[in-house]
Simulated assay, not measured.
Amino acid sequence: MKDRVISVDIFRGATIVLMILVNTPGTWSNVYAPLLHAKWHGYTPTDLVFPFFLFIVGTSIVFAYQNKKPNAGTYKKISFRALKLIGLGLFLGAFTISFPFIKEFADIRFPGVLQRIGVVFFFAAILFLNLDWKKLIAVSLILLIGYWLLMAFVPVEGVVSTFERAPNNLANYLDVKVFGTHNYKPDYDPEGLLSTIPAIVSALLGIFTGLILRSKQEKKTALLIGLGVALLVFGHLWDFIFPINKALWTSSFVLVTAGWANIALALIYYLTDVKGLKFGSIFRYAGANAITVYFLSSFIAKLFYSIKVDADTSLHGWLFNKIYVHDFMSMELSSLLYGLSVVAFYCLVAYVMYKRKIFIKV
């Protein structure tokens, strides 16, 4: 990227680090509440992490493609990158440690985090290349309002729609119909088909932030905070009729999470790019190989859960119980310390890769 903005790198890396932390507790039975997703409606700090990453994907698109022409070569690069992300996600969903190292077809999950990143990146990048900011605003509004209208007013097999986890929830219904057994849960998937539509807007809102950062505006920090506050207000107002919900990636959820992302990025931008304070280097290292670090953490975590030390204990469970579980500390603290140790390991990996100038572009 040309004209790098330090805060963007720090924000991206911090988001990846948080994704790893919330995905790898010592035990899911004992986790501090802020490190868990909301049970359904509402949101916790953990629910901000994935939309933050899609948001910064959008911001990064501005830096990477603002001077690119919408031609066959650019479209090919965008498509290839999107397909690589989707392919890596499908691999994580299909891999198993037993020969032939692929799950039974009926057990493979098709949607996933990397798949959603790939799809969102593809559409956000194509839209950015072909539309100006005013048309992007119009597209964002059409997608968010259209998604709300679909979810609120389209009946499911003659039954009035609901936003609850139920058969007459349109997003759940379509996921089950389209993917069948290939979902995260039998009745819903947090990276499902219909909910990917508003997820694209999470990246588009990041694009607007990228345009502000690349502009010649003098009061960028104030603009970002003002935009963030406005998105928070509108998101929470929309929550009254379209509840904030990560699993459904509701329109209110898109606005609220983008609001917090703008405020967080504005503060980092002010401290680093404006005031010149030096901090967060470890996050920059993680951000330089964000997808690689995330993929490694997901793949190795899957191995640790799959490898058995004995009939009832995985390698993950064995390490957790042997090293982190003690009578003098709570299980929640033990679980958190395990997660922090995992984060420290991948930060070290990212540091070594950065210092050795190993940058794997996915």
Results as ranks from 00 to 15, higher is better:
G192C: 09
E191F: 08
P190N: 06
F304I: 11
V256C: 06
V256R: 07
L205M: 12
G276V: 12
G226A: 08
G276Q: 11
N262V: 09
V274E: 15
V229W: 12
F242E: 13
Y269S: 02
I282S: 14
D187C: 11
Y269P: 01
I300A: 08
F234R: 13
G287W: 06
I225R: 09
K216L: 11
G210T: 08
R214Y: 11
A261I: 04
V293N: 07
W238E: 11
T250S: 11
Y294S: 14
K275D: 06
T221F: 12
K185H: 15
L271T: 10
G259E: 01
F253T: 00
F240Y: 12
N245W: 00
S195E: 01
I225G: 03
A199L: 05
S195C: 09
N245K: 03
A264R: 07
K216H: 14
A266F: 04
I300Y: 13
K246C: 00
S251V: 08
V274C: 13
L204P: 04
L277E: 10
V256D: 03
K185E: 14
F253H: 05
I263D: 04
Y294V: 10
S251A: 15
F299P: 03
I291F: 12
L205K: 02
P243A: 00
F240W: 09
G287V: 06
L227E: 13
A230S: 15
L271R: 12
L193Q: 07
K278G: 08
F299I: 05
S306I: 07
A286M: 14
F242N: 14
L232W: 10
V254N: 03
T292L: 13
